[in-house]
Every structure is written in structure tokens, then in C-alpha cells.
Design a protein around this nucleic acid. Structure first.
Length: 929
DNA sequence: TTTCAGTCAATACA
DNA sequence: TGTATTGACTGAAA
């Protein structure tokens, strides 16, 4: 117990493979380990033998894989075993099962846990010498302990006399002389590993040691076992007290009344409508099964740090003096570079890395990685993270563990070379610090085929039928063979909680196979354009809507599907998450029955709708969990003060044309407005600052998005020196623009302005605009190629006519999707600008520009934006430039002080513009870039 | 704290 | 009814 040798373990980080004792808790030394393995073997064999015909292992059509050796009960974390097992065990909810049979089942399940535990421990010892358990292979110690206790108590309740039975004394059980000892050990191990609280955050860099334990246990940690025991004492069934993983916002000891989960454990892989509802009311046996499943299967509550978990940030053991001595001079820059490479290569988040490896927050990691101090400038404390990084880099498996952790990939999947049997993996020795990418990529191929085996059976819930048949491996035309894959079920695992719903209530489509993450992470390139084209063709040809496709195949809403299909980003620009839908699309394309399945689903829905309709109005279909309508799911689960009544539809602000113009103009003046500017605009336009912020953000993002395929578009760069947003100028220009619009609408495009822009600027702008006078098409025509030559705030300084990015940014997100967008980053502006903006580096050139037909000679490229300049406007601009701002201020004080109620009406006029829904709304901002 | 990436879902439109 | 647009929102990153 006491000999958790600091020195040995301290070195473990540097000696990746080796000292077995180093990671084993007391009693898990080598000698005993062998015995334990033997014991485990006996246990599993016994468990296998105990499967009497009455046990329904084999009577579930979907549980064929159960018939493998008990060892295979060490399930792939991504298999759907949870579900099938639950289904299997649910059959025991009948009370007429003989008690001894029940006892046997308990024993069997207990044995499974123990077996798993032994496997895990061995795995840990062999494959994760760095000290941590593989992130997903480890069960939170309390869970394990509580489960063991729960088993015992359930058994005790069943057994007359209430004693915890000695398993080997039970009828039908082979003698297991070491079982209890093993349990004891496991519990001990659990206690020893208590350091990490929930276990969600692993110390991947350093072995745990005694100090760690001492340092790591928080008060709440210490309380947990007591809480559990206390709870067990007061509860009818211990199983009801095994707490589920905490969800955000849940208190560990708080009442779970607010949680739909209640006290029942919910194996995370269980889909809500299938098993979730049963959990709370489940019999002890069912709950036991749940516990077992959740314990022996991959922990699916991945290392996604809930707030609760975050609060229990890993407390890493301090760096030992030996380690300091060992690393007495590190090249921090090099370390940082390598770490950044690794994180980037495997898309490991800084947060995960920081919390798991460094014991630091994401922000600190970012800081460290961005600005590493040289070694000699660091204090001892400051050197610690670098030492940890160094050890991380030297641990052959650390990256795998983190990747696995982040993307819920079983480490063995990333490390294995195939032939995955569900047995604890023996990771191959991998060379040098970073596992070679090639290796990862090649594994991706085997993953794909593996996925078929592991997941094809697994469709849960109503989407199950979407899983393609096992073994299907089709290569869609145009795709390399290694892309030939099949569609995994959508709901195998829980995905990151989306925004609105607690995880337990998540719509099915929010459950995602981690293998999709794997594939997204490991696939080097994918032609998103081709994929979307094929998808569009397929959908069109078969009259399948984006909605049903999105919900059933991608787990996305119709709108998202539309965007994806119409504006697919190139693969290299996508994050792992963003790649996921494309992986799914490709998988879907590879499914020979893809269309059939969707058609079937479509018909199903149609029937359901028909039934619903015929069952009469007033029906509360939100309770219809069989509904395939995702939105119902969301609405029924959205938190907040929803009072049972269908929550009021979220109202969206609809910008008037004037508001849009104003925003675009403001964007042109400053795509990254500061708070005062935002407030000014908010006041000016009668919108909330939040709305303004959102608009700017959306606008930037959509500008970026609309770049031609394959070319990295850049949102308007933050120039280094743009002048601060000038409200007066803004009004001036806006007025000019609005007048122009009005002229156009009245068909007076050529007519000179009746009064100088400045004068107009002081008028009620909203009133100046003729509303609804312009037919949509005309609006569009006129909107394109608009010359918004703006007065220059500063004199053009040399060739820096594009001093202001006013024009350059006047385009909108709508302006490029006609395929003729012309964007080009302007070369870095003159250096002496405000420090607020980054220089805009040239990014790419629209090839269309070679085409003279498309290039108006009057178009000027300014800061990546192409605008037309007419001589008229040049004159106007010049004139405008001469307008002194001061009168404007007097006549119309800068807006921050003004509210929408001020005499000058804000440009909010949707009510005055009833027909602002004219097409122009959507199209008029297709200006030339 | 701000920005980005991804997404939802209300709304418009064909 | 299906698709496109776009305001709003969230979590992660900087």
C-alpha cells in the first residue's frame, strides 16, 4: 500500500514500457497479476459455462456476437452491445424467475466486471505504462466500487440471511476462491485511483503516485464513497443508487429529480427512447445489467468535460526533483513546436491537453504554446509544464490516449493493426515520440471495415434500419477503395451535448458513432464537392428531401443540410466536427440500400403523420417519442421556463432593407467593430447590441464561407490601422447609399442627388427611402455592382487609395454565391495603421479575374473586394470628403447617446416596410466583390 | 473576452 | 412541400 514507489513511478513517464509494478496498486504486483489473470480466465469461463439455455444470450437475434467467448464481452466500446445486453436482460424483469437463477445472473455479471477489471488492469500495465489508465478503459473508481457493492447487496438481499454470498459457495457456481480477494483488490485499486475524481480526466503524462493521491483527493472526492454507502443503506435497491455520470448542472449529491435519469444509471450508449425510459423503472436486474454494461463496455461518457468535471481538474503530481534534474535544460520552443504539431495533427484540444497532461487550463496552454519563455527565464514552477510536455512527447502512447479521449476512440483502435477482438489490446511498439501518421491512416482503413462488424448491428431506435447490412463494402464510383465504407448507426454513442437539450433527452441523431470521429480524424482528404454533388443527385433523383436526409443520415437540420450541400467547404478547411457530415454522406453513398432505407423511413413518417392527423387535432404529439421529427424532440426537451405549453416560437429579427444597408456599410467601415461602435449601431438601427454582434459575426463567417471551393477565403482582415469607426462618416455614407437606393427604386438612377449627402444624412434616413418600390429583380440588378465609393477619411496616401476598406467590405454574404465573386486580399496595407488590425495578407486570387468580360474596368480591388467605381462616384466621394464632420455632429450628435426613440428615427422599419420581404431582401446584397 | 466553427430553426421563396 | 437564407446560439480556441 505504501510502496507506490515514487521514484519508480516518477520515472515511468520517461520509461514508457516497463515497470509493471509502477502502475499497479498494492497487491497487483507481477506475481499476483499472473494469478489474477488466471483467475480472470476462470471467472470468464465460469461465466460462460453458466449460460444456461434459459439465459437468453442467444435468443436475441441481434446478439449473435454474444456467443463468442466471454472475453468478447469486453466489448468494443462502440459496439452496440449495451443495447443488446439490456434487451437480453430485460427479459428477466419477470418476477417469476427462480431466485437462484437471479443469483446466478448477478454472479455472472459480477464476474464480468471482475474480468473486465483484470483485463483493464493488465491492459493498463502492459499498454499504458505512462501511468494513467487508458482514458476510456478506466471506470471511475467509485462507479466500480459502488457497482461491486451494489452487486453484493443485491445478492445479499436475494440470499436468505442477507449475507453477502461467497460466490464459490453458490449453487451452480464453480469455486472462485479468489474472487472476493480479487474484488477486494479491484476496490483497492479503485480507491487508489481515486485521485482523478470522476476519472474523466486522466493524468497522461505522469504516473500517479502517493502524492498524487493525497493531493488529488478533494473533499468532495472523499465524500463520494460515503455518500454512496449512505445512500445504499437507505435505499431499497443498491442499483438505484449507482449514480449516473453527472451531467452539466447536476449536483453530485443533489436531487436528481430534475434529471430525467433519476438515480438509475444509464449506460450512455443506450438511446433515450429505447432504454432510457426503462431505466428508472427498471427492475434491479435490469439496473444491474445496465451497470454491468456500463462498466464492462467502453465508458461512453467520454472525456468531454462537463462543468462538473472541469471543476475537478486533474491535480497532477508534482514534478519530482529527479525529473527536474533529468530535464535541466529544455528547449522550450522546440517542445512547444512539437506539442503544437501533435495537437494539431491529431486535433487534440488544448483544453484536453492542458487538463490531462499539464494540469492547466486551456487559456494557459494557449499562452504557453504561443509564447514559450526560454528555459533560463523560467522559474521552477514555470518549468513544470515544459517538463510535462517533454514527457508527453516521449511517451509513445500519450497521443493515442489523448486522441482516444478526445474523440471517444478506443485507444486500442488507434493502436491496433486490425484483428480487433474486443480483448484488451496490446499496442504495438511504436517508434518515436509521435506515432507516425501513416500508421494512423492505415489504421483508418481497418477501422472502416471494423466499423461494419461492430456497428452494423447496432442501430438503435427507429433509425436502426438505416444501418447497412453487415459486411457491405461498396466503393462508390469516384472514390478510392479505402473510402468504401458503410453507414454506421447514428446513435451509438452520445455526442457532445448540443445546445438545447440535456444529453439524456438528446434526439437520436445526436448520438454519434465515435468511429465517425475516427474517420474524420484519420481521413486525409475527401472531395467534399464530389460527395455533395452525388448526394444532391441521389436525393433529387429519388425525391428525398433534405430534411429527412439530414435527420436520418447526418443528424442535422434541413437548413444545415442545405448549406452543406450547396456550399461544401473543402476538406482541409473543416474541423473534425465539420468533417463528420461528409463522412456520413460518403458512408451513406456507400450503402447499397441507402435510398431504400430513406424511402422506407419516408413512408414510415408519412404513415405516422397520417395516423396522427386522423387521430384528431389537439393531440399532443410532443409526447410521441416515436416521432421522427427532430424538432419535436428539441422542443420537448428544451430547458427553461417552458410551461408545458408549446414554447413560443423563437422570433427572429428581420432586418429591414435600410438596416441591412446600414450594417453592410458599417461592416465595410469596420468589419470588427468595437463595443462603442456596436452600441452606436444598435442605437442607430434600433437593434440590440447582441443582434449587431451576431450580424457582424455571421457576415464575416459567411463571407469566408462563400469563397470559391478549395480556396481559403478570408474574412476581411483586421487591418492594422483602420481609423476608428466614425459615426459621422457612417451616417454620411449611409445616407448616400440610401439615397442611391431610393433613386434606383424610383428609376432615377441617373438623376443627380437633390441635395448633398451630408444634408440627407441629417434627415430622417428611414423616411428618405422609398419603400417597396422596387421589384425584386430590379433590386437585385441595382444592388449588384453598386458603387459605394466612400469618402476617404484620410487623404489617399500615395497608392493607398484603398486606405479604407469601406468599399472592400461592402459586399455581403450573399454576394459571392453566384460564382462570380471576386475576392482578393489586398496586399498588406501601409504599416502605420492602428494596431487593432492585422495586416491583410494576400490569400488567393479569383481566377475569374482573368476573364476580362467579368471584370469591369472600373472595378477596383480594395482589400479583397472588387467594387465598381464610376466617375460620378469618384466625384461624389471627393465632394464628400470635403464635408466637414463637425456640423454633422452638431446637427446630429453621434449616436451612442441617441436611442431609437430619438427624433431621428432609427433605421428600423420592418413595420413601415411591409413588403420588405420582397426578393430584394434576399438578393439585393449580391454586390460585386 | 473576442472570434471562430458549426449548427439550429424561423422565415422566405420556388 | 422542399430548399435557401440568415439571425441566433454554443463550445472551443486564441
Amino acid at each position: 500500500m505504501k510502496n507506490t514507489n515514487l521514484s519508480k513511478r516518477g520515472g515511468a513517464g520517461r520509461v514508457p514500457v516497463g515497470s509493471k509494478e509502477g502502475n499497479m496498486g498494492p497487491g497487483f504486483g507481477r506475481g499476483e497479476g499472473e494469478g489474477d489473470e488466471r483467475l480472470a480466465h476462470i471467472l470468464t469461463e465460469a461465466s460462460h459455462l453458466m449460460k444456461t439455455p434459459s439465459q437468453p444470450n442467444n435468443d436475441d437475434s441481434r446478439s449473435n456476437d454474444d456467443s463468442n467467448s466471454p472475453r468478447t464481452q469486453c466489448l468494443s466500446p462502440f459496439s452496440n452491445k449495451d443495447s443488446s445486453q439490456n434487451r437480453r436482460l430485460k427479459k428477466y424483469e419477470n418476477d417469476d424467475i427462480p431466485q437462484e437463477k437471479v443469483v446466478r445472473i448477478y454472479q455472472e455479471e459480477l464476474a464480468k466486471i471482475m474480468t473486465r477489471r483484470v483485463d483493464d488492469m493488465r491492459h493498463n500495465r502492459d499498454g499504458f505504462p505512462g501511468g494513467g489508465m487508458p482514458p476510456h478503459m478506466e471506470r471511475p473508481p467509485e462507479d466500480l466500487r459502488m457497482a461491486l457493492e451494489a452487486y453484493h447487496r443485491e445478492l445479499a438481499k436475494i440470499q436468505p440471511g442477507g449475507n453477502i454470498p461467497n460466490l464459490h459457495n453458490l449453487p451452480g457456481m464453480p469455486p472462485f476462491p479468489n474472487l472476493l480477494a480479487l474484488q477486494q483488490q479491484a476496490m483497492q485499486q479503485a480507491q487508489n485511483q481515486h485521485i482523478n475524481g470522476s476519472g474523466a480526466i486522466q493524468d497522461l503524462s505522469l504516473p500517479k503516485d502517493k502524492n498524487a493521491k493525497i493531493n488529488g483527493i478533494t473533499d468532495s472526492d472523499k465524500d463520494k464513497p460515503m455518500d454512496a454507502e449512505e445512500a445504499i443503506r437507505h435505499a431499497g435497491s443498491a442499483f438505484s443508487l449507482v449514480r449516473p455520470k453527472l451531467e452539466p448542472g447536476q449536483q453530485s449529491t443533489g436531487s436528481s429529480a430534475s434529471s430525467p435519469l433519476g438515480n438509475a444509471i444509464l449506460p450512455p450508449a443506450i438511446t433515450p427512447n429505447e432504454d432510457y425510459n426503462n431505466s428508472a423503472a427498471a427492475s434491479p436486474l435490469q439496473r444491474m445489467a445496465s451497470i454491468t454494461n456500463s462498466l464492462i463496455s467502453q465508458p461512453t461518457n467520454p472525456t468531454h468535460h462537463t462543468p462538473a468535471q472541469r471543476s475537478m481538474k486533474a491535480v497532477l503530481p508534482p514534478i519530482t526533483q529527479q525529473q527536474f534534474d533529468l530535464f535541466n535544460n529544455l528547449n522550450t520552443e522546440d517542445i512547444v513546436r512539437r506539442v503544437k504539431e501533435a495537437l494539431s495533427q491529431y486535433s487534440i484540444s488544448q483544453r484536453l491537453f492542458g487538463e490531462s497532461v499539464l494540469g492547466l487550463s486551456q487559456g494557459s496552454v494557449s499562452d504557453l504554446l504561443a509564447r514559450p519563455k526560454p528555459w533560463h527565464m523560467l522559474t521552477q514552477k514555470g518549468r513544470e509544464p515544459f517538463i510535462r510536455m517533454k514527457m508527453f512527447l516521449e511517451d509513445d502512447h500519450a497521443v493515442h490516449k489523448l486522441v482516444a479521449s478526445q474523440y471517444k476512440i478506443a485507444p486500442e483502435k488507434l493502436m491496433r493493426t486490425g484483428n480487433y477482438s474486443g480483448a484488451p489490446p496490446c499496442p504495438p511498439n511504436m517508434n518515436k515520440p509521435m506515432p507516425p501518421t501513416q500508421k494512423m491512416i492505415s489504421d483508418a482503413t481497418s477501422l472502416l471495415s471494423k466499423m461494419q462488424q461492430e456497428q452494423l448491428l447496432g442501430g438503435h431506435g427507429h433509425l436502426a434500419h438505416l444501418a447497412p447490412p453487415a459486411g457491405l463494402l461498396l466503393t462508390p464510383p469516384g472514390f478510392p477503395p479505402h473510402h468504401a465504407v458503410t453507414l454506421p448507426p447514428l446513435d451509438v454513442k452520445e455526442r457532445k451535448p448540443p445546445t438545447h437539450a440535456p444529453p439524456a433527452m438528446r434526439p437520436l441523431h445526436q448520438h454519434i458513432s465515435p468511429s465517425v470521429y475516427e474517420m474524420a480524424a484519420l481521413t486525409q482528404d475527401l472531395d467534399t464537392q464530389t460527395i455533395t454533388t452525388k448526394i444532391k443527385e441521389a436525393l433529387l433523383a429519388n425525391n428525398i428531401g433534405q430534411k429527412i436526409f439530414g435527420e436520418a443520415v447526418l443528424g442535422l437540420s434541413q437548413g444545415s443540410v442545405s448549406e452543406l450541400l450547396s456550399k461544401p467547404k473543402p476538406w482541409h478547411m473543416l474541423s473534425i466536427k465539420g468533417r463528420e457530415p461528409f463522412i456520413r454522406m460518403q458512408l451513406w453513398l456507400s450503402d447499397a440500400h441507402n435510398i431504400d432505407r430513406l424511402q422506407a423511413l419516408k413512408n414510415e413518417r408519412r404513415e405516422a403523420n397520417k395516423r396522427r392527423r386522423s387521430s384528431g387535432p389537439g393531440q399532443d404529439n410532443s409526447s410521441d417519442t416515436s416521432s421522427n421529427d427532430t424538432s419535436e424532440f428539441y422542443h420537448s426537451s428544451s430547458p427553461g421556463p417552458t410551461t408545458g405549453a408549446p414554447s413560443a416560437k423563437k422570433q427572429r429579427v428581420l432586418f429591414s432593407e435600410e438596416q441591412k444597408e446600414a450594417l453592410r456599410l458599417a461592416f465595410a467601415l469596420d468589419p470588427y467593430p468595437n463595443m462603442p461602435t456596436i452600441e452606436f449601431l444598435a442605437a442607430e438601427l434600433g437593434l440590440s447590441t447582441r443582434t449587431i454582434t451576431n450580424w457582424f459575426h455571421n457576415h464575416r463567417m459567411r463571407l469566408k464561407q462563400q469563397a470559391p471551393h478549395g480556396l481559403p477565403a478570408e474574412p476581411p482582415a483586421r487591418e492594422q490601422a483602420a481609423a476608428p469607426f466614425d459615426p459621422v462618416q457612417f451616417r454620411l455614407l449611409l445616407n448616400q447609399r440610401l439615397l442611391e437606393l431610393q433613386k434606383e427604386r424610383m428609376g432615377l438612377a441617373g438623376v443627380p442627388l437633390p441635395y448633398p449627402p451630408y444634408f440627407a444624412a441629417n434627415s430622417n434616413l428611414a423616411a428618405l427611402i422609398g419603400r417597396g418600390l422596387l421589384p425584386p429583380d430590379e433590386a437585385k440588378d441595382q444592388a449588384s455592382g453598386l458603387d459605394l465609393s466612400m469618402p476617404l477619411k484620410r487623404e489617399p496616401d500615395g497608392d493607398d487609395f484603398e486606405d479604407d476598406d469601406v468599399e472592400s467590405n461592402l459586399g455581403s454574404e450573399d454576394s459571392m454565391d453566384d460564382g462570380e465573386s471576386k475576392t482578393e486580399p489586398k496586399a498588406a496595407s501601409t504599416p502605420a495603421r492602428s494596431s487593432r488590425r492585422k495586416p491583410a495578407a494576400p490569400q488567393w486570387v479569383n481566377p475569374d479575374w482573368q476573364d476580362e468580360k467579368k471584370r469591369n474596368p472600373d472595378e477596383v480591388i480594395i482589400n479583397g473586394v472588387c467594387v465598381m467605381r464610376s466617375d460620378d462616384f469618384r466625384r461624389e466621394a471627393e465632394e464628400t470628403v470635403r464635408v466637414e464632420p463637425s456640423p454633422a455632429r452638431e446637427a446630429s450628435p453621434p449616436a451612442p447617446a441617441r436611442t431609437p426613440l430619438s427624433p431621428r428615427a432609427p433605421l428600423t422599419s420592418p413595420d413601415v416596410l411591409p413588403d420588405d420581404k420582397i426578393k430584394a431582401e434576399a438578393d439585393d446584397d449580391r454586390w460585386e466583390y
